[in-house]
Design a protein around this nucleic acid. Structure first.
Lengths: 136, 136
DNA sequence: ATGAATGCAAACTCTTTGCACATTG
DNA sequence: CAATGTGCAAAGAGTTTGCATTCAT
């Protein structure tokens, strides 16, 4: 079993922490710690990779960032509650539409809490054939 | 960038592959490759860990297994429901609930067709902390 | 026979950690 | 000045891969 990760909520303000938050904030969508580290270094911010990991984990803990995990690792995204959306992707040509609809959000929230779950997040993607590809 | 993993769909029947499928089938909920390997060895099935990894990846590819990933790694579960359903998974302990609800299905259908898409499918998973883990 | 699957161990990737040093409050 | 954060490099954990061997077909 693994212990709950809970490194104490940072109590000092360092430029590193602020740089990470800022870089994350400026990034659209999800990024991994490594990608963000690369981004920072490319912007001439000399910062340790471990620090980026620590900062991101911390931001996520504080609820300032969402996380998502896939084979490439943990991905972080700055939480702007407005931008939660889903994708409708064409199986054939890859065209993508962004879907935003409070209906699902509420549904997810409701269903989850009915099962006693808290701190909910969800992934939802739609796949189909877009108009053009449907015709073809 | 990472390539889409697609090791050719197994063409031979080995007892190892069958053992993995069977062990997975008998297991309730999600298991990791390592856990399953341990289970197999405890049942006096001498089998390589790599083989378990390969077999599971393959089962998932074939649609015989669902996968879910958290900090402890990739978790596999035998697909037993024919019906379309979704999962509500505990981020911490991996507990899983199956969700079936026509609401989302209809929503997906409606939204997609509004965008001109046809032949719709979708993936939807909810993540949160189950009652026990919320308490902890 | 013949090439795909296995097993083992080494290699990899992502992430965490120990510790000396720098910084913040 | 005291404690906390950083940086680095080493350690961990999980997963993948190279290659010789075994085995299904």
């Amino acid at each position: 079993m693994k212990e709950t990760r809970s490194s104490a909520p940072q109590r000092r303000n360092t430029w590193q922490r602020e740089a990470v938050r800022e870089a994350l904030r400026e990034h659209e969508g999800f990024v991994t710690a490594q990608e963000l580290h690369r981004i920072l270094e490319d912007a001439d911010q000399r910062i340790g990779l471990a620090t980026v990991y620590r900062s991101l984990a911390n931001l996520a803990e504080q609820g300032e960032a969402d996380t998502m995990r896939n084979a490439d690792g943990e991905h972080y995204r700055y939480c702007r509650t407005e931008d939660h959306h889903h994708h409708l992707v064409c199986r054939r040509c890859g065209a993508t539409e962004e879907i935003t609809d409070p209906v699902v959000e509420q549904w997810a929230e409701r269903v989850s809490s009915q099962h006693g779950y808290t701190d909910i997040s969800h992934t939802l993607d739609l796949f189909g054939l877009c108009r053009e590809c449907s015709a073809a």
